[in-house]
Simulated scan of single mutants.
Amino acid sequence: MTTPTTYPCPTCKRPATWTDNPNKPFCSERCKLIDLGSWAAEEYKIAAADTPFSDEIDDQKT
């Protein structure tokens, strides 16, 4: 029997299995909820040059 492939959990860095893991890529429900809370608290940000439709808003002001 082969050893299941593991990857580091994005939250706690402990090994997490990929197969038969309902919380993948996290090692547990707890780590999944910690990550969700970080997104909800806006601790993660996706960089963008402009906000969507910002050029349309500027055109309407003049």
Rank of each mutant, 00 (worst) to 15 (best):
M1Q: 14
M1I: 05
M1G: 15
T2K: 07
T3Y: 02
T3G: 13
T3P: 14
T3L: 04
T3R: 03
T3M: 04
T3D: 08
T3C: 08
P4G: 06
P4F: 00
T5Q: 12
T6H: 07
T6P: 05
Y7T: 14
Y7M: 04
Y7S: 09
P8G: 11
P8E: 11
C9Q: 11
C9R: 07
C9D: 15
P10H: 10
P10W: 11
P10Q: 11
P10I: 10
P10T: 07
T11D: 07
K13E: 13
A16Q: 01
A16N: 04
T17Y: 12
T17M: 03
W18Y: 15
T19E: 11
T19Q: 12
D20I: 00
D20M: 00
D20K: 05
N21A: 12
P22W: 00
N23L: 02
N23S: 10
N23P: 05
K24E: 06
K24C: 08
P25R: 01
F26N: 09
F26Y: 13
C27D: 06
C27I: 06
C27M: 04
S28G: 11
S28M: 01
S28A: 05
E29C: 02
R30S: 07
C31P: 11
C31S: 05
K32I: 01
K32W: 02
K32G: 13
K32Y: 04
I34A: 14
I34M: 10
I34Q: 15
D35E: 14
D35W: 06
D35L: 03
L36G: 11
G37I: 00
G37W: 03
G37L: 04
S38C: 07
S38D: 09
W39I: 12
W39D: 02
W39M: 06
A40D: 12
A40T: 07
A41P: 01
A41Y: 14
E42R: 07
E42C: 08
E43Q: 13
E43A: 08
E43S: 11
Y44M: 02
Y44P: 06
K45N: 09
I46C: 10
I46D: 12
A47R: 00
A48C: 08
A49P: 04
D50H: 09
T51I: 08
T51A: 14
P52E: 11
P52Y: 07
F53C: 14
S54Q: 10
S54P: 00
E56Y: 04
E56H: 02
E56W: 05
I57L: 15
I57V: 15
D58Y: 11
D59H: 03
Q60F: 05
Q60I: 13
Q60M: 14
Q60G: 11
Q60N: 08
K61G: 11
T62G: 03
T62W: 02
